[in-house]
Nucleic acid binder design. Structure first.
Lengths: 333, 333
DNA sequence: TTGAAAGCGTTACCAT
DNA sequence: ATGGTAACGCTTTCAA
């Protein structure tokens, strides 16, 4: 391995000068600089990141903590996050927390050990709190006690709009499928749904007349299917499944039961995995701006790392888009 | 920040002893060790990764280079890879190459700069070659000149078996949809297809009688749809789409054209995204053992990093599973 | 503008 | 068994 000292020797200068020439910081004569750069090129010199990190007290590494690497809801944001951070000279260290509060706690230790300069965090434990002093931006979800900036989707507005399109289609009997209410995502999606439903005069769990029901279940395909089973003998006109996995569960259940969508039952979803558009019928849904969230998170984190004082500690809500497609059918009312 | 020297001082020992006590390497009296550990706990001491990396000349970081973070085909392997590596004390540094040979070259530089101990690499450039001396294992695809171990799916056997099930269903007129033949994946999938087709007496591009055709296209939904369009007025009995995205393209095309699957056309695919099983009809396909590949890759890389000499440089082909579902229909022949 | 030298926090060697 | 000390490769003062 060739070191800075090697380069300096070949160029006939001191290591200090060589360092300045290569980093571009501080005064160095143009001629000298050339010599150093040539020497570096000749030897194929590469700066040692560990030595730099040790000396500069910053690693230029950013941590990404997420519940599950194999979940396109996160990777959609992660992809642009990685690109933006890379462009800014940071590398991404990825750690999965597996939806486990203990693993999440351990992950913070790892991040600290690694001297990461900052962390992008999709929180698992709603009450968890990041180590003080470390620039952190929460992504997608936000904890109750968020003292760090958070970048999330404006699910309240989005799901409300989605629900409105269902109601506008004439439906007066709705069911919402939603995950654990401790998560900010579930809570906000439900808020949006309720807001639109009550605004339209639907009453929760009403025995007769315009009504809506809320089914809390596990955030998975199995959870979605199980929830549908619970209302099998009292189907509504439309189901609003508040995550892509819940949509899948509802779809699976409908397929097994021979329930036709949208003829027997209308379905609206959340998210926009590629297959939503190809499904017969294509799935009407609210699609959070996942890429936009990744961009914004990168931007917020870079700001926080550059100037920790400026750390905006608010929750940024990015608007998404309602995609009106074929899975919701006009109803008499 | 508290350093090893702080701990040593509090425990009343030298830094050397403190280091040994904490790392567990070398002789140290049990009593002394206790004192050091207590002091460390009291101070909330954490070893500095940069200093360790500098001194030990190893970072305990492994790089993961892949074309696209937002692709479940890769993340399925990446998730278990991360878990296994984490368990072995390594962290994962993720870098996307975006299917671009230049970006891939630049990524190697970054990996070198970061002093990663090894790299798991999903190759983009079929002729690219990793920097010498760095433990590397190729995942999913392998380059022509692989001097490093590669862990891939046994697509040859898998696709052959898949194709056989289609033929056994009575089909004698097949079309294969496949991506760029430079990629080892495309090439091997096609080999499997051809092998089974010819073995059954099908002739490529025959004007009459048992035949098969091969359509090379872009590895995307659009590519799949475009390919289908090319054979619109001479549809085969069954299409074998050799990637999940191609399946999606074929499905989209069929939906737009009003072609019913499997009644008008049988379809077999590759991969096993969740929606394959939920689709009506569920998609018959060959599913590579992505998780298994992640495990094996982690294992190979750890071996290579532990003992570079032992680096097996062969291509490991892991068997996958053929999932017989409803998208292929029995045909007269 | 430049070079020498002092760290950054560890580990590992060498006497003790 | 233990403590001092010399690296590891770099950045950054400080004098010159």
């Amino acid at each position: 391995m060739t070191t800075l000292a090697d380069v300096a020797r070949l160029a006939g200068v001191g290591t200090g000068t060589a360092s300045r020439a290569i980093s571009g910081k501080g005064y160095v004569d143009p001629d000298t600089k050339r010599r150093v750069l040539d020497a570096a090129a000749e030897l194929g010199y590469r700066r040692n990141a560990a030595a730099r990190a040790l000396r500069e007290r910053r690693s230029r590494v950013v941590g990404l903590m997420l519940p599950d690497i194999h979940n396109e809801f996160y990777t959609a944001s992660a992809a642009v996050l990685q690109a933006d951070l890379h462009a800014a000279g940071y590398q991404l260290l990825v750690l999965a927390t597996g939806n486990d509060a203990d693993a999440e706690k351990a992950a913070w230790e790892t991040m600290l050990d690694r001297q990461v300069d900052g962390v992008v965090h999709v929180p698992v434990d709603p009450d968890g709190t990041p180590p003080p002093g470390l620039p952190v931006v929460q992504l997608n979800r936000h904890t109750r006690t968020a003292t760090t900036p958070a970048v999330v989707s404006d699910d309240i507005a989005g799901v409300a709009e989605l629900t409105r399109t269902v109601i506008d289609a004439g439906h007066r009997d709705l069911v919402a499928l939603v995950g654990a209410p401790e998560l900010s995502t579930s809570a906000e999606r439900l808020t949006g749904f309720r807001r639109a439903a009550t605004a339209a005069g639907l009453v929760e769990d009403a025995a007769a007349g315009p009504r809506y029901r809320v089914l809390v279940t596990e955030f998975s395909a199995d959870g979605g299917a199980a929830a549908m089973e619970r209302i099998a003998d009292d189907l509504p006109g439309a189901v609003v499944a508040l995550s892509a996995r819940l949509v899948m569960g509802a779809l699976r259940w409908a397929g097994e039961r021979g329930i036709a969508i949208p003829d027997d039952l209308s379905l609206a979803g959340l998210g926009d995995p590629e297959w939503f558009a190809v499904w017969q019928p294509p799935i009407t849904s609210f699609a959070p701006a996942l890429a936009g969230m990744g961009h914004r998170a990168a931007q917020e984190l870079i700001a926080a790392m550059t100037d920790p004082a400026s750390a905006s500690s608010g929750v940024v809500r990015l608007p998404g888009r309602v995609l009106v497609r074929g899975s919701v059918r006009a109803a008499a009312g």
